Amino acid sequence: MRQALMQPFLGSALLGTVLATTPVLAVSRDLPQAITPDKSATLTVADFLRGMEVLSKIGPVRAEQDPAYVSALRGLTHIGESYRVDYEKAKSAGTTLDSCPVGGLKMTTDTLVPFLLRLPPEQRSMPMDKAFRLHMRELYPCPATGETP
């Protein structure tokens, strides 16, 4: 499964900039609206990886009609937007989150999927929003107190 999931992501930026200043909405991709409600609050790592497996098996055009893929994409978009809002609030307040992205907020499935695949199977029931923040912490660690970013 690991190899099958990795192939479509090597060298690609499928989701582009999830955390761009301008929100990237799943609706802008002409995804079907009636397939499933936004389940980002309950989306688990396993759910997200199932959606990505669908993509690797049937390709992007057909995957956009699959409920597992649509749910994973919408969930990740919502999680990314929530993170971006929290980041902007913390920045405005002069504080930081548990991750410190510098030079722009960019994260794609090229780094996210390998991170998720490294998680032990017993941790794949973790909520996807928690896994996303763990990944951001790994990508953008905050400097130790007294260091300059």
Rank of each mutant, 00 (worst) to 15 (best):
R29V: 01
P67R: 11
G59D: 03
M52W: 08
R137Q: 14
T22G: 05
R29E: 11
L14H: 08
S12T: 15
L10D: 12
K106I: 01
T21Y: 08
S71H: 05
E53Y: 09
R74M: 13
R74Q: 14
A93C: 00
D30C: 09
G104Y: 04
A46L: 04
T95I: 03
T145C: 01
A13T: 04
K39D: 14
E147N: 14
M136L: 15
L43D: 07
V70E: 10
T95Q: 12
L116C: 06
S12A: 15
Q65F: 10
P23V: 04
D86F: 02
T148G: 13
F132T: 02
L116I: 03
L97P: 00
E64H: 09
L105W: 04
V102D: 08
G51D: 05
R133F: 02
P67L: 08
I79V: 11
R118E: 15
L116P: 01
R84Y: 14
L31R: 04
T22F: 06
T95M: 07
P67F: 03
L10T: 11
V70N: 13
R137T: 09
L73I: 12
G75V: 06
L31W: 12
L119V: 01
R74P: 00
Q65Y: 12
T36M: 11
E81N: 09
R133C: 03
A46C: 01
M136S: 05
F9M: 13
R84G: 03
G80I: 07
D129S: 13
G16R: 02
C100H: 07
L19S: 02
M107I: 12
P121S: 08
A13P: 00
R84E: 11
P23A: 06
D129N: 13
M107G: 00
A4L: 09
P120W: 00
V102H: 12
F9L: 13
V70R: 06
A90C: 05
P127T: 05
T22H: 11
S82P: 00
S12G: 10
F132G: 00
L55W: 06
A63T: 02
Y140N: 14
T96E: 08
P8K: 09
R118Y: 02
A34V: 01
D38H: 09
L117V: 01
P120S: 09
Q7V: 08
P121N: 08
A93V: 01
R62A: 15
I79Y: 07
R137A: 11
P101D: 08
R118S: 11
P120L: 01
R124F: 02
L55Q: 03
A34W: 10
A4H: 05
V45M: 02
T36Y: 06
P114M: 10
M126W: 02
G103P: 01
G104R: 04
L31K: 05
T95V: 07
L43F: 05
V102P: 00
E53P: 00
V85T: 12
E138Q: 14
L49Y: 04
V102W: 07
